[in-house]
Design a protein around this nucleic acid. Sequence first.
DNA 1: TCCCGAAGTTCGATTTAAATG
DNA 2: GCATTTAAATCGAACTTCGGG
Lengths: 364, 364
Amino acid sequence: MASAGAQMKRQSRSNGTVTIRDIAGKAGFSPSTVSIVLNNAPLARYIPAETKERIHKVARQLGYRPNQLARSLRSQRNHTIGLIVFNITDPFCTPILHGIETALYQASYISLLADAHNDRSRFERYLEMLLERRVEGLIVVANWLVVQIDLLADLENRSIPTAVIGRKLSLGAVSSVMVDNEAGARMAVEHLYSLGHREIAFLRGPKVLVDTGQRWRGIRSFAQSTGLALDPKLILDLPKSFDPNEGFDAGFRLTEELLRRKLHFTALVAFDDVTALGAMRALTVAGVKVPQQCSVIGFDDVAPAALSFPPLTTIRQPMETMGACAVGLVADAIAESQTLPLHRKLAPELVVRQSTTKPATESQ
Amino acid sequence: MASAGAQMKRQSRSNGTVTIRDIAGKAGFSPSTVSIVLNNAPLARYIPAETKERIHKVARQLGYRPNQLARSLRSQRNHTIGLIVFNITDPFCTPILHGIETALYQASYISLLADAHNDRSRFERYLEMLLERRVEGLIVVANWLVVQIDLLADLENRSIPTAVIGRKLSLGAVSSVMVDNEAGARMAVEHLYSLGHREIAFLRGPKVLVDTGQRWRGIRSFAQSTGLALDPKLILDLPKSFDPNEGFDAGFRLTEELLRRKLHFTALVAFDDVTALGAMRALTVAGVKVPQQCSVIGFDDVAPAALSFPPLTTIRQPMETMGACAVGLVADAIAESQTLPLHRKLAPELVVRQSTTKPATESQ
DNA sequence: TCCCGAAGTTCGATTTAAATG
DNA sequence: GCATTTAAATCGAACTTCGGG
């Protein structure tokens, strides 16, 4: 009777999920044995092949699927990392995500995705959710991030390995992965300079972005070393914006402005590709031929850059590599439970397409 | 072997995480009481404000963060849905993800992201991982999906609410969200027809995609009802491909082919925007002006469509809405534990930009 | 079926120590 | 001691039950 009652205890599970106990019951062994066999734990050495087969067979029959929640609770590991992006619709974000995802898959991790929409409170809430779920690591894609994320350093980050892509936090144990903005910008002007351009317009990024300053520094240093004159009238700044996709309109308008002022320039360096596409449109609409009458160069090498007409010359950020690199940093930190932050600065690459050429021999 | 920490019943936790017991110990109450207070459970009615404050204060001091793994194990809910995409670099995918993410956030869900890379084994492994993590629902973004995903229907789907975006499975309890491809394609030809075009070229999609057949049906039905002649020589098919981004090259080459054969057409309907951009490039390179000498229309309205020159006229899929819709279906199914599959077909929208116009009065 | 709080069971799995022959 | 198996403790939280004012 007593045993019967005990058996009744866990009978049909409304849930429909199969537990290790169900297998134990049907196979005639204890849950411990089943666990040992299914995990091929050290103790499984002593278990006869017959028993093992039996258990495996029943597990297969019942369609057993181990509950990772329970397993994680016990093992304190869940093979999950949190992935916070600051705007998933940013074309710059996509290849990074791809790189991250591919690297995570190989490392048998999976990611909890959070899009902060460039909003601080949303970022904070997501961060809290991820921490409550006990993610083992955190990757933040901070491209075009306008809000401050110092809380990453403040908060609790001492304990959980974190990497930021596109930013470098001065405080805290946060690793970072960035492109070498200064070198990239230098490559851009250098490309135009070596083609013969001397009157170059610049659409700089919004001041709030770190990239803006870094890239400008690269341009200035090149100008100084070669004696290239930077005409202040040809230097415009993109307005602060929370949406990278607005760069197109901004680039369009700023270029219109340059043309309206009848300023003379044979080439234009845009802050990024989307801005460059906007600039190209303004030039084309105004009857200025790209690249014959004006060369245009972008930055990033996002997907639309190769699809435009003419295809855009640009400075490529190794986005997939950056994603993979961040995963590497976080995965290593988890494996070795180290906390010292590492900072990677990756090299950009000049991609010459058809939006740049030598300046026309005689004026515009 | 066993460290001192392990022997001491429950003292400092190397982990660093604070448990409900730690609070209980420090506040001088039992874990049960702490749990009741922190969750404001029914029984908390009887607990004096003083006790509550004390417990809350200690929780705050210690930086307590409830372990959702433990909570989920107990409650059988984890507020997580699995999100499988078939290629995150597809520009079509991005706005859908955005729509999904926004809707999930409002519903207090978070998503486990999986990119199947259009690979069946990878899809299967991810599916397994998600099920083991006991996701409450599943959303599959099946755009440009070449592999079969019948396993969704087969497998275990009876139990977990699932929605597919961009496909409709005949079997199983899988809900679906699709654009009305037939209506969309009809709108595209109708737009060109009403502008006066009669010689129209078509770049159809790969045969393996369901969308291809549906869109072609829309075009045929329009042609029949108006008497528009469809010249077989002007109808080409995109090759099978596992990467939607290859559509650009394919569109380029097929259009080159049309031009090389000296075929006459005043407008071109592309399978999707990326293909259309490829076609526009081929036309432009060949000296055919778009839209003056040849109109081009796409499908989808992905981001690059608005950035091209000329900006692309296209049939817009309500991608964000589709994402939100899928979330709605899944969330409702979870809440009401219903299993009957629902199928939503959303209306497309004609977006007239500048790649289409009236045909030139006299031939090409 | 008032007030206050604690003890004990449960979720599903892993792992230790221990019990059999 | 060895091969074979299992009871019991554990992970962290929630909830049911119970015992004194």
